[in-house]
């Protein structure tokens, strides 16, 4: 089996982010998963056991005095050092703002082909193929890379399953980043999840509200239904622009793209830009008082009615079932 590198994301204080499991699971589909982590010198020793339990067969710690103080280049240099040592057939990273740029710079440095935002990866007779969901899920595209390695960023939450836990062997390498080619980080606000609700991007259920909620106060209704279902809270651009919720909740082309099992749209008309961010949801429910709202064209279950009447009744029914 060929080696496959998986770039592991860490928090500002050096812990492994929860994106590690899915990038290792994706790597295990293609070959022998090798976790690559850029850390400050001496800070990586405690990470191997956890990464092994997530399926890494090897853990490659690349010590770098500038890890955490330079933007992305310590991760690029870590991937370059690990690629030289392990000669991988593929290099995988999470398609987050943080990691995809590190993957992209690595692709340039290694003169490798780059595939971004894969929703699944597979090895097809030795050829690595990535599947992408394009234009908000309207098209499914498969792509491959000519030459080796293939550098692929994987959409968060898209690859399911977990690689088999192992006792990972540890390799420690070191790297120095060129300060002139790096932006310096002078402030980190590593915001912990502000609520106990699941993260929007990876949530199995999402309840979103739109302009139909009418006010910031009324938006509480969305949160109440979300909490009754254990769902994340989303919003349309109209709701964000009206100040009902912060922009981080925006679902759609210019916000977060979600692909949950259940998506409930409350008072959202369903403009193309919004649908582009949610129409790959497995089941879509819409409640809107406007019979002509385009959201009904993609809804598996649509209710023409007043959200302020239907949602409280739904919450009550959910509570009754929960007993």
């Amino acid at each position: 089996m060929s080696n496959v590198l998986a770039l592991i994301e860490t928090t500002a204080d050096g812990r492994i982010r929860n994106t590690a499991a899915s990038v290792l699971a994706a790597a295990a589909k293609l070959g022998t998963p090798i976790a690559v982590v850029a850390t400050a010198p001496g800070a990586g020793a405690g990470l191997a056991a956890e990464l092994g339990s997530l399926g890494a067969r090897q853990v490659c710690i690349v010590e770098n005095g500038q890890a955490g103080s330079l933007l992305a280049t310590p991760q690029v240099d870590a991937l370059a050092a690990a690629a030289e040592r392990f000669v991988p057939s593929a290099i995988l990273a999470v398609n987050s703002v943080e990691s995809r740029e590190a993957a992209a710079r690595s692709a340039v440095r290694l003169r490798a082909g780059l595939l971004t935002d894969a929703v699944s990866v597979r090895s097809d007779g030795g050829k690595i193929v990535a599947t992408h969901s394009v234009f908000g899920g309207a098209y499914t595209v498969e792509s491959a890379v000519e030459g080796s390695p293939a550098v692929i960023t994987v959409r968060q939450g898209a690859v399911e399953g977990q690689a088999t836990p192992t006792d990972a062997a540890v390799t420690i390498l070191s790297a120095v980043s060129a300060a002139a080619a790096s932006a310096a980080i002078n402030r980190i606000d590593d915001a912990p999840a502000a609520s106990s609700r699941p993260e929007l991007r990876t949530a199995a259920k999402v309840v979103s509200g739109g302009r139909g909620l009418g006010s910031q106060e009324n938006f509480v209704l969305v949160e109440q239904l979300a909490d009754a279902l254990g769902a994340a809270v989303g919003a349309s651009r109209a709701a964000v622009d009206s100040g009902y919720v912060p922009q981080s909740h925006q679902v759609g082309q210019t916000g977060t793209t979600v692909s949950p099992d259940l998506y409930i749209a409350l008072g959202i008309s369903g403009a193309i830009q919004h649908r582009a961010g949610m129409q790959t949801a497995k089941t879509i429910v819409a409640i809107n008082k406007d019979t002509d709202a385009p959201i009904f064209d993609v809804a598996d279950f649509g209710v023409v009615g007043d959200v302020f009447a239907v949602v409280p009744q739904l919450i009550k029914a959910l509570e009754a079932r929960a007993g």
Binding site: V285, I287, T291, F296, D297, V298, A299, D300, F301, G302, V303, V304, G305, D306, A309, V310, V311, P312, Q313, L314, I315, K316, A317
Partner: peptide, 15 residues
């Protein structure tokens, strides 16, 4: 589009 109903007082329960 799948099922579509108009609320006549029980839509929440039907949902």
């Amino acid at each position: 589009g799948g099922t579509r109903i108009t609320d006549e007082g029980t839509a929440g329960e039907q949902l």
